[in-house]
Amino acid sequence: MIRIKCPICGLRNETEFTYGADATVKRPEMGEQEQQPWVDYVFNRDNPRGWHKEYWHHVQGCRQWVVLERNTLTHEIGECKLAREVEQ
């Protein structure tokens, strides 16, 4: 059971959240006409073995997207911030 400290709601079980995706990929600006930046954003991943910044959606809570730091090898949990407060 991953436990996530939602900045709004406090420490909650993963079952209240849905997993989103890698939070380090930056969405190209609207208006980006080149294809490759979009391919990289939508499809390609660093997929690190170790610390990972990732989006989770507190879908059964405050419905905020958060950026969680989590270790993919050990499942250790690091910092959790509101996505809207994380600089991309």
Binding site: G20, W65, A83
Partner: peptide, 13 residues
């Protein structure tokens, strides 16, 4: 809904 929320809270803040 989730997709909308995602975009509004990340890329389209």
């Amino acid at each position: 809904l989730a997709f909308s929320e995602h975009l509004l809270q990340t890329a389209w803040k």
